[in-house]
């Protein structure tokens, strides 16, 4: 290319001795008056403090977005309840009635819908989050604020949706078996999944900001994940039917989504004992930690580059 990029080092060599003396003088003056580089990335500690300071922004932004999404529809926010219900209905029809994958799972409708809801919480956080930066470019270029607030607001949105979905699930299960103190376990289960989702969303927000192709690719990734995570079938029962060796289930249960679905099912479904995966709680905790810390650091490392055009 004829318009090759002059390397910073070459530019430096081009500048004369007088200029480099001036550079040192200006840098010293900046230091003396406590000026900082305008495009510098804040330290992780400062960043987290700033982020905590904007917690109100995160909540308000999430609320405003929910409002904006449903503002055009005649039924408005009722769609927040209708969408998961319709989703559950379609999957029940396809997998429960038409394909008959029930194979001996008691209360199959609740089993399926619980898995569906947990899965779509993570899936939607990731796909929506991959657009968190690119969809808000104008806001990013107008105002200065820690960019991680945007993907975080997207997760808050999805969490809010998840609460509504869970209320529907409780109504369904409650009708057939009555309430149970086991349900309280859903609180730590959802908490761990939310930590995982925050990390995953931050990772995809950064990927989506620089690689716009990722949003084309994500639906295929999540769909593969959907079929591998034991939402329509019970993983232990399926593997038993296939006479798979013992290590297969160990490997499959390392899938974070399977683990979060499993701990949610343990909380909600009484009969889940015989279908549960090994070490689901431990795996859930480890994934939440890895994802949260890794996601934050990964996102923060590009903080000074979001919004560049």
């Amino acid at each position: 290319m004829s318009y090759s990029r002059p390397e910073p080092s070459r530019l430096a060599r081009m500048s004369t001795a007088a200029e480099s003396a001036k550079t040192a003088e200006l840098a010293a003056m900046a230091e003396r008056y406590g000026l900082s580089r305008s495009s510098a990335r804040p330290s992780l500690r400062t960043y987290l403090i700033e982020l905590w300071g904007r917690r109100q922004f995160i909540v308000s932004y999430a609320r405003a977005r929910t409002y904006a999404v449903y503002a055009g529809a005649r039924l408005g926010s009722i769609w927040q309840v209708l969408t998961p219900l319709l989703n559950a209905g379609v999957y029940y029809l396809a997998f429960g009635v038409l394909l008959g994958t029930k194979n001996g799972i008691p209360n199959y409708a609740s089993f399926l819908i619980c898995g569906m809801f947990v899965f779509s919480y993570t899936q939607r956080s990731m796909t929506e989050g991959s657009r968190a930066i690119s969809a808000n470019m104008s806001l990013i270029r107008t105002l200065h604020f820690p960019r991680a607030t945007l993907p975080l607001a997207y997760v808050v949105n999805e969490l809010n949706q998840m609460f509504l979905s869970m209320a529907i699930l409780f109504l369904m299960v409650g009708f057939s078996t009555g309430p149970n103190w086991h349900w309280l376990l859903l609180i730590p289960a959802l908490f761990l999944q939310t930590l995982f989702n925050i990390g995953a969303t931050l990772v995809f927000a950064r990927l989506g900001a620089f690689l716009t192709d990722i949003s084309q690719l994500l639906p295929f990734i999540t769909r593969t994940w959907l079929y591998a995570s034991g939402i329509f079938f019970s993983i232990p029962a399926k593997l038993e039917g296939l006479h798979a060796p013992g290590w297969v289930i160990q490997v499959l249960s390392l899938n974070p989504i399977s683990a979060y679905i499993d701990i949610a099912r343990r909380a909600v479904l009484e009969e889940h004992v015989k279908n549960q995966l090994p070490h689901a709680w431990e795996i859930s905790i480890i994934w939440a930690g890895i994802s949260l810390v890794g996601g934050f650091i990964y996102f923060w490392r590009a903080e000074d580059r979001y919004g560049r055009g």
Partner: peptide, 18 residues
Amino acid sequence: AGLLPPASGAIYTGGQPS
């Protein structure tokens, strides 16, 4: 404003530009 990092050289600011 810090939204477009320079390829070389530096911009120092006191406080947050908007």
